[in-house]
Amino acid sequence: MKFKVLFLLIIGLLSFNANAQRGVRIGYIDTEYILQNVPEYKEATTQLDKKVQNWKSEIETKLNAIEQKKKELDNESVLLTKELYDERFEDITFEEAEVLDYQQKRFGPNGDLMIQKRQLIEPIQDQIFAAVQEIAETKKYDFVFDKSADVVMLYSAERYDISEQVLRTITRTSKRSQAKNKKERKELEEEEVVPEVSQAKDDRQKALDERKAAREAELAAKRAEREKAIEDRRIAQEELKEARRAEAEARRQKAEDARENKTETEEKAKTVATDSTSKVVSKIKTDSTIAKGSVVKDSTSIKKPKTAAEIAEAKRLKKLEERAARQKALEDRKAKIIEQRKKAREAREEQVRINDSIAKAKKND
């Protein structure tokens, strides 16, 4: 559609050129090029970019802090009651909603960024429009197009580009303005290049700040209450540990006393046993001294008992004798059997000889 409109416009211009006494003068500008070469616009854009970066950093920091709080809440969820968990989760959700609201306020369709961009570019656009009007009236241009606008320009010769003329006009006008209003220029330099938001924005920010302050006070009270509850639990746990330590110390002392009593009892019993043993030994010595003479006299008549080694040796010798006797009996029986077999063989041989003799005798007869 735009191409058709442009085509019809060019045809109309050519027709008008054919019928007019003078040629139609056409020019165009490149608004993007002009803006990039206006010092005031570049400086204001740089400052606005810095503000945008600060806003982004601030939002990112807040979102990271919220994510960290979420992780800490997840890690501590097993230690918290349901009420404390829900309360902290509600606080985190509220903070996250505030950050998202702040992000929308800065970067939304009607946010500060869009407002300040419009406020930044509108004065430059007014200057461009005024410069184009001045040049068109001076140079007798019939049409001036904007190359960076929605108009489709399939081809444009550089000799029709008046962007540099517009830039020179804006610069010249700016210098004249600076020369006439030095005091105002100094005041403007001290102010921000990008103006503040409207009064409605300020009121909304004030309301948000008040709401945030009230919420922070409420959160501080709840946080103090939670800290007090945690401190009470800690004190109770310390008291319980102290009671357990005291109980363990009492048990240890009791066991130690019992061991000491047992040791004393054993020592007393040992002392009594030692005394009894001493008395018995003394009595035995006395009795042995009395009976020593008679024991010496009778010792010659009493046979000395055999020792264990002598008894074992006697048993071993007895076993050897029994084994030798059994071996001899086996040899005797073997010799007897051999003798009997020999006699039986001789008897059979003798019978065979007799039978042979009888057979020979019968044969001779």
Results as ranks from 00 to 15, higher is better:
residue 1 M to Q: 11
residue 4 K to R: 13
residue 5 V to P: 05
residue 9 L to D: 12
residue 16 F to R: 11
residue 20 A to M: 09
residue 38 V to P: 03
residue 44 A to N: 00
residue 51 K to D: 02
residue 54 N to L: 04
residue 58 E to R: 14
residue 74 D to W: 10
residue 77 S to K: 12
residue 81 T to K: 00
residue 90 E to N: 13
residue 92 I to R: 00
residue 98 E to N: 07
residue 98 E to Y: 04
residue 99 V to E: 00
residue 100 L to K: 04
residue 101 D to W: 03
residue 105 K to Y: 04
residue 107 F to E: 02
residue 114 M to V: 12
residue 115 I to Y: 01
residue 117 K to W: 08
residue 118 R to Q: 11
residue 122 E to Y: 02
residue 132 V to T: 00
residue 132 V to F: 02
residue 134 E to S: 09
residue 134 E to P: 01
residue 137 E to N: 08
residue 143 F to A: 01
residue 144 V to W: 00
residue 147 K to D: 03
residue 158 E to P: 02
residue 158 E to W: 01
residue 168 R to K: 15
residue 168 R to M: 15
residue 169 T to R: 08
residue 170 I to W: 00
residue 176 R to T: 09
residue 188 L to H: 07
residue 204 R to Q: 06
residue 206 K to H: 08
residue 206 K to G: 01
residue 214 A to P: 12
residue 215 R to M: 09
residue 230 I to Q: 07
residue 233 R to Y: 06
residue 235 I to Q: 08
residue 237 Q to C: 10
residue 239 E to N: 10
residue 245 R to T: 05
residue 246 A to G: 07
residue 247 E to Q: 10
residue 251 R to N: 11
residue 252 R to Q: 08
residue 253 Q to A: 07
residue 268 K to W: 02
residue 270 K to H: 04
residue 275 D to A: 06
residue 276 S to N: 11
residue 278 S to N: 13
residue 287 D to C: 11
residue 292 K to D: 09
residue 298 D to S: 06
residue 305 P to I: 00
residue 310 E to H: 14
residue 311 I to H: 14
residue 313 E to Q: 12
residue 316 R to C: 10
residue 330 L to R: 13
residue 333 R to A: 09
residue 335 A to S: 15
residue 335 A to C: 06
residue 336 K to F: 13
residue 352 V to H: 07
residue 354 I to K: 12
residue 363 K to R: 13
